Simulated assay, not measured.
Amino acid sequence: MSALAAWLTTATPASRAQARAGRFYRGTLALLANPLAAAGLVLVAVLLLVALFAPVLAPYAPDAQDLARRLQPPSFAHPFGTDQLGRDILSRVIWGSRITLVIVALAAITVAPIGLAIGIVAGYRGGWVDRVLMRVTDVFMAFPRLVLALALVAALGPGIENAIIAIAATAWPPFARLARAETLTLRRQDFIAAARLQGASHGRILLRHILPLTISTVLARLTLDLAGMILIAAGLGFLGLGAQPPSPEWGAMVATGREFLTDQWWVATMPGAAIFLVSLAFNLIGDGLRDVLDPRSQGR
């Protein structure tokens, strides 16, 4: 029996929790030591604060119209300018951060569990279970994600709820593949054999031994994929299939501003810049997590 197997079979729950807390602390310090990851964390923290305090930060109501001030360039009164209905673009971008976070958060907490469950079950059980689950995964991966999301939203109807369902239904296959690959490696380890010898059930092995060791890798992939989810949500909004007017959704704002892109560039540029910054932030965090969780990237 290896040292890891011996520790897993003899350690108390308190010692395991203490070890996990220590790993989390060291991983957090390593992540903050990465300048790009730290910058991504700062951007995401700013986004969360903006979304949380939107009623205080927004100088105007997001749907307040003033046709006398339509299509005004950025100024002191309207730092991001106004749109074709005289609405303050800064206020709409601030309130739109809430919609973006809701879409991404709900899609993420749906995608990761689905992908993890399918991946670890397929990798652990093998045989016909693995073949069936992976063939289903291959079917979903055969279609471009945005095309499949468009088809699902077109079938379900436009709206933010259906957009979340479409994003979740199209984003889980890579997580299932990744979790399966990790499980195929873990199930051959000595500590899994030791757990079986002690009479642990398949469910206990999956939940107590394999799942905790696959979460970190899936979490890094999830952080990277959040940027793609944001772009898909913005794409659905751009095509009129996401949040419906007058909701200040960033993709829909870019769609309305494309008519004025030549002369009134700020109408589409400001929400487009918000999409870019948020996507960049999650990509930076994902890269930092990958560096922290992959020993090979640290020169070891």
Rank of each mutant, 00 (worst) to 15 (best):
G159N: 09
A151V: 12
T183Y: 01
P144E: 09
Q189Y: 02
L146Y: 07
A233C: 06
P73T: 08
P35W: 03
A68E: 14
A154V: 07
I99Y: 13
A255I: 03
L29R: 15
G159D: 12
L289V: 06
D138Q: 00
L224G: 07
T100M: 15
V267P: 10
D63C: 03
V44D: 07
A61G: 15
L57E: 04
Q18L: 15
L206S: 01
M270Y: 14
E249A: 15
P295A: 01
D63A: 15
G251R: 10
V93G: 04
F175A: 02
L222M: 15
N283M: 13
A154D: 08
A21N: 06
R87F: 09
A54I: 10
S201D: 08
H202Q: 12
S91K: 03
A193M: 11
A39F: 14
L293G: 09
Q189I: 00
G159H: 09
V147H: 02
R98D: 04
I114Y: 01
R125S: 02
D291K: 11
T170R: 00
A181N: 12
F53G: 06
G115S: 05
A179V: 03
Q244G: 10
M253I: 12
D63S: 15
P295M: 03
T262C: 00
A107M: 05
A142L: 02
L146K: 01
S2M: 01
R26H: 14
R258G: 02
S97M: 14
L146F: 14
I114M: 03
L186S: 05
L280F: 11
P212M: 02
I215T: 14
P79V: 04
M141W: 00
P271Y: 10
L8A: 06
R69D: 12
R23I: 06
A168F: 04
L71S: 05
G81W: 10
G126D: 04
G299T: 11
D287K: 08
R26W: 13
A281K: 11
A51I: 10
A54M: 08
T12A: 10
L71N: 12
L36D: 02
T28F: 15
T10G: 11
P174D: 00
D225V: 01
G81H: 08
L152K: 03
L241I: 03
L197H: 07
I160H: 06
L47F: 12
R131A: 12
G203Y: 01
L197W: 01
M1F: 08
L184E: 09
Q72S: 12
L150T: 02
L241V: 07
S15K: 13
L231Q: 07
